[in-house]
Amino acid sequence: MSFWFWHGLKKGVRSTHYPREFESAAGVSPGRPVATEFDSAAEAVVAAANCPADAIVARGSAAEVKLERCIYCQHCHYGNSHLLEWHSDYEWTMAVPGRGKYQPLPTAYHRSLHVIVVDAGDCGACLHEVKQLNNPLYNMHRLGIFLTATPRAADVLLVVGPVSENMRVPLLKTYEAMPAPKRILAVGACAINGGVFGRTFMSAGGVASVLPVDLLVPGDPPPPLAILHGLLAVTGRKSPVLQAASSEGNS
């Protein structure tokens, strides 16, 4: 005789209260580097040179961050010198530059959003984080967000991975098979601009090169709450907080 039901009741609600309350438990987010003011312009250049992904740009004595390029190597966080400040939040969904203001889905989708996830050559990290949304802690169903296996029932196309050549046609077919209105959410640095894979003969270098992306969730991989923020931003219940640099995301 197992008392799992009773144990469950005794433990009470363990799910996060995000977005009603800010979730501050340890480890929910790796944080993100933010623009930091250095003593001199030379130090800012060194800080920018420390970044292998060209995510840090020196402007005067300040080092600015292009989060969509960040691969979370954390050189600027745990390195020896010229470290950047880190924010420990997770609401960093970005609108795509050059596409105007993001038009959220109608209010009917606020509490009923069906998501199809396409693994377009992902290494597994982003997919793993997406999977966490189903677990009791994040529990996206409480927000009316559901995963679906068929594009015919989907409203959001959530893409992870840099769009490998083998997944390009299936991705296009999935998008075509979705009924309007539909939105595309690119999750992870690879889906935004190819990430560590970049643009090669086998990698399209981001979703934006094959489909019109609506919102970006940077991170490599982004934590579950960041993805959840992205999904809420798709419906318009949250708004994208950052703006990507105009040279990125719309190539």
Binding site: T150, P151, R152, V169, P170, L171, K173, T174, E176
Partner: peptide, 12 residues
């Protein structure tokens, strides 16, 4: 009504 090709799991 919009008609698309049969959804067959995205295979080519």
């Amino acid at each position: 009504v919009t008609r698309h090709e049969l959804w067959a799991g995205g295979i080519p």
